[in-house]
């Protein structure tokens, strides 16, 4: 095999390179997802990749799966219908921080509460990239965006804590700098039977990096390299040593029956009655 191993999972007739800016982390996440799917030996015909709107949500069109590019914020609602009607499908939701947590926040928490079996890969670049760099629910307070020229006045969400509190069975965070760890986390999430979140911290050099003078893709990834702490190490450190850093790893891993599994019991009860 003298070809990039990911190519067999790409749409053969789709034009490349992809739509993302040079150095955007989203392509690295795509690579990690493809390797995770290959590692688990999942059948492409049984993969459903559902996305909303935004930079990250352009991913499904490139992957040779069943792909559904929906409306802004609504990917998880669509994905719930896909999974519920055909529970055989492995559903991956591709979403971003604005898509999943602002306009789609309600669907996010309720799908986690229901524990609908899906893997949500949330590419967190802390900004709205596609529309020109407006602040999102994960933009850290004080950081600049095109709609926060003096720095945001809002506090940011922690997607992993949110997912855990809402009832997800798995919540983990990785960075695109550590693509190998990210791949491992996605592999773990795909194997879960329930609502599993992987937050992938993915730099946006074109907008976030420029607006906040954090440099180009290389500099932003260098920052990731130097400012990432694994959750196990972070637990042993004093809080001031963790503040401002990216904590990665698995935050929550539980076993609870998934929605379609419970719904099968509803069907059995309805038929028995």
């Amino acid at each position: 095999m003298k070809i990039h191993p990911a190519y067999e999972m790409l749409r053969p007739d789709k034009n490349f390179p992809n739509v993302w800016c040079p150095g955007c982390g989203h392509g690295i996440v795509q690579g990690a997802i493809i390797r995770a799917v290959q590692k688990l030996g999942l059948d492409r015909d049984e993969m459903a990749m559902v996305s909303g709107i935004g930079c990250s949500s352009r991913m499904p069109v490139y992957c040779d799966f069943n792909s559904l590019h929906t409306a802004h914020g609504r990917a998880i609602a669509f994905a719930t219908g896909v999974k519920l009607h055909n529970p055989k499908l492995h559903v991956i939701v591709i979403t971003g921080d604005g898509d999943a947590l602002a306009i789609g926040g309600n669907h996010f928490i309720h799908a986690a509460r229901r524990n609908v079996e899906m893997t949500v890969v949330l590419m967190n670049n802390m900004i709205y990239g596609m529309t020109g760099g407006q602040y999102s629910p994960t933009t850290p307070i004080g950081k600049r965006a095109s709609t926060a020229p003096y720095g945001t006045a809002e506090r940011d969400f922690d997607p992993c804590s949110l997912a855990k509190a809402a009832g997800a069975v798995f919540a983990a965070r990785g960075t695109v700098y550590n693509a190998a760890e990210l791949e491992k986390l996605i592999t773990q999430a795909l194997a879960k039977k329930g609502f599993a979140l992987v937050e992938a911290v993915s730099p946006c050099p074109t907008l976030y990096g420029r607006l906040n003078r954090e440099g180009n893709a290389v500099k932003m990834m260098q920052w990731q390299k130097e400012n990432t702490v694994n959750v196990k190490a972070a637990e042993k450190l004093p809080p001031e040593k963790v503040r401002g850093k990216i904590v990665t790893g698995v935050f929550h891993d539980a076993e609870t029956p998934g929605y379609t599994e419970i719904y099968d019991r509803v069907i059995a009860k309805a038929r028995g009655a």
């Binding site: 095999m1 003298k2 990911a6 490349f16 690295i28 690579g31 695109v176 791949e183 990834m221």
Partner: peptide
């Protein structure tokens, strides 16, 4: 290099 390329444009040969 292969894992971090956002464009799947570089890979390590066998």
């Amino acid at each position: 290099c292969e894992l971090r390329c956002p464009d799947l444009a570089i890979f390590v040969c066998e």
